[in-house]
Design a binder for these strands. Structure first.
Length: 416
DNA sequence: TCTGGGGTCCTAGGACCC
DNA sequence: TCTGGGGTCCTAGGACCC
């Protein structure tokens, strides 16, 4: 059996851990640039605030109901996530960290509700984060069970232990809430009269294969209790790494774009080195504001294929800037820029080239020193001159909470 | 005025090989 | 007049996830 442990309203819950007076009050967390709602407490959901809604559209609602608003604080959420995962590790021997707020736990040795309730209590006590747990034979069914645990149980734990219970539950489970069924597939299914998970489970496999591809067939099997997605206990190396941001205010000048693009490229290189990977392709892209259709739209990108895979900051920044120069047009106003590095290979398996002119050993040492200093002294303490110091493309983050757990200056003081 | 960021996988079709 | 069969690799676009 597999258990899916999922944090409730994770980002909103993280903000609450250090501001307990927000318990039972509406809380929302916004995306970068304070743009869209990306997390809501139950109270905020009840007010009718939708996931992904732009913040400016719900300004009145926020004021009227005194909704507590936060900018995203990923340092805080990342750290609390680590603590939650580490707590799971004290209770199970095998697990898969599936996302920042979810993990699949191996319950094959012992599957019962009491065990799950224990884990839930422990996480709550050790980290302050509320979670729910769904237990079933397959990941897909565990996802369904988790959904039910969140919506319809007091204990926050739900287990599929017999076929009759699964059948009755799937019969009232909307097909669009299934893991792997998005908007498009949901519409297609409803068009042919498939509205519930049970109807999908009993649908014709050939039709599903044709319209939902092989993934649809796997979904069907998983609903029947056949494992198609086993527990992945080792973390896979990333195939692509992307760093991209919208600008707080729109940008026209090449000089400012250079600062942004070189910073994103440098971040990509740092992420690569952290993963012990090298990339074989480097892409740079720009984008105008799609929400201003009256303005000229332009979404260019440029890809470079490398002879020798690299994770060197200097080299990656150099290519990104070269691409930027090629795609930049002075008659557009830009809203977003980004860098993607792809086709990664392990650092230790880089194919060298006879005609290589870069002194890679030297570069590796420079990067190592820079990484070490930045790790000790804080991000971007040492950077390339081309990244600039102004950060004129900086994010808007007006409601940022302190980094309670990752920055000494932000530690809470306890007054006795 | 104001609309996020970071990933994965699958498929069809084109280009190429012998 | 008649024009095969069997492959691989790459890419763009679409779908999904959190």
């Amino acid at each position: 059996m597999i258990a899916l442990a999922d944090c409730n309203n994770f980002y909103a819950s993280c903000e609450r851990v250090f501001q307990p007076q927000l318990e039972n009050k509406p809380v929302v967390v916004l995306s970068n640039n304070d743009g869209c709602v990306i997390a809501r407490s139950n109270e905020a959901k009840k007010l009718g605030i939708k996931m992904g809604e732009p913040a400016f559209k719900i300004k009145n609602l926020i004021e009227k109901h005194n909704v507590n608003v936060f900018s995203t604080n990923f340092a805080l959420y990342g750290d609390l996530s680590k603590r939650v995962m580490n707590t799971f590790r004290t209770e199970v021997s095998k697990m898969e960290v599936y996302s920042i707020d979810e993990a699949f736990l191996d319950f094959s040795d012992l599957a019962n509700k009491e065990r799950a309730i224990q884990i839930k209590k422990k996480v709550q006590m050790w980290t302050g984060i509320p979670i729910c747990i769904g237990i079933a034979k397959t990941k897909t069914l565990a996802k369904v069970a988790n959904h039910i645990a969140k919506k319809h149980t007091k204990s926050g734990v739900f287990m599929f232990d017999e076929e009759d219970l699964i059948r009755r539950s799937l019969n009232v489970f909307p097909v669009e809430d299934l893991w792997g069924i998005g908007r498009k597939h949901a519409k297609r299914l409803k068009d042919v009269g498939i509205h519930t998970a049970l109807q999908l489970r009993e649908a014709d496999t050939h039709w599903i294969k044709r319209h939902l591809s092989i993934n649809g067939v796997k979904l069907l099997k998983e609903l029947k209790g056949e494992i198609c997605y086993p527990l992945e206990t080792t973390t896979q190396r990333k195939k692509n790494i992307c760093t991209a941001r919208s600008f707080g205010t729109e940008i026209k000048e090449l000089s400012k774009l250079k600062e942004a693009v070189s910073s994103h490229a440098n971040t990509c290189a740092t992420k690569l080195r952290k993963e012990k990977s090298c990339c074989s392709t480097i892409s740079v892209f720009l984008s105008t504001n799609p929400f201003k259709p009256q303005a000229k739209q332009y979404h260019p990108y440029r890809v470079f294929h490398l002879d020798v895979p690299t994770n060197d900051s200097l080299e990656i920044v150099k290519f990104a800037l070269k691409g930027l120069k090629q795609i930049y047009r002075s008659d557009c106003i830009y809203k977003k820029a980004g860098v993607i590095v792809g086709r990664t290979v392990p650092e230790s398996q880089v194919q060298l080239s006879l005609f290589d002119s870069v002194d890679r050993d030297k570069r590796r040492e420079v990067n190592f020193v820079v990484d070490t200093i930045n790790q000790k002294m804080g991000r971007s303490k040492v950077k390339l001159a081309v990244q600039g110091s102004g950060r004129k493309w900086k994010l808007k983050q007006e409601k940022l909470s302190p980094c309670y757990t990752t920055r000494f200056a932000d530690l809470l003081e306890v007054v006795i």
